[in-house]
Design a binder for these strands. Sequence first.
DNA 1: CCAAGGCCTGAATG
DNA 2: ACATTCAGGCCTT
Length: 280
Amino acid sequence: MKNKFTIDIDNSINSGQVFLWQKNKNNWYGIDGQNILEINQENKIKSISNVKTSFFRKNDDIEKIIKSISKDKIIKKAVRKYDGLRIFNQDPFQCMISFIISSNSNIPKIKNSLEKISEKFGKKVIFKEHEFFLFPQPEKIAKSSINEIKSCGVGYRAPFIKEAAKMVISKKIDFENLKNNDYKEAKKNLRLIPGIGNKVADCIMLFSLNKLDEFTLDTWMIKILEKYYSKEFQIETKTVTEKQYQILHEKIVDYFGPYCGYAQQFLFKMERENYEKKWL
DNA sequence: CCAAGGCCTGAATG
DNA sequence: ACATTCAGGCCTT
């Protein structure tokens, strides 16, 4: 019997937030930084480190969150249809690299690139009789050459990736600080990293820095706003400019409230399924 | 402040 | 087959 506290693992993994996951028979296996997670059919979670993980955000009061974001028919429908969809709390470094790679790309390709990066630079480990590669540490990527990084299929993003890793090592970017920063401050800092603009910063903040009060405005979310929310949020320019992004974002946070990140995830999932887009 | 064009790559499209 | 387009953007002009 399904209830509000049951996580729908398949839908949550296949919602554009994580990429290094694979299903083997009935179990899901995923890389999260230096950890590997296994989820079986009964939603039992095991990790290679046996350290308690907050990956599944079980402390979120999901009932309260759902109530809070359920402002209209559209979002209510999405919430109902994708009942167990949850946001994960990822390793920030892996999340940051993932979304730098995501720009101007698509899910299968992002996954492919991240797998190559893990294989090339990450530590090989055996877990549950399967071979995995952990996500590489920042140091490893920072001292690699641009061409080595390029060989993972990331193209022009290679120098961004290297610089991002260097900024983490030098503490110009400190994830623990960013977690304590508010939305605006964290975003300002993240955007110092090359390859991280509005959209990428928003993803990193929602998926790894506990910023539930963000709403990512990628092409899909814009499409959704135009389709279902044209009265509430008018988009004035052809492409969403810096200024427009800010104005729109503020309006949306006003509308959906402090947990609007969840609203984004439900709407995104719904619309992508409508278009039958590919997942992992 | 806004619009336009280039950028790696590979899957999809014609 | 082979060329062209396009995809969860970013950055520079």
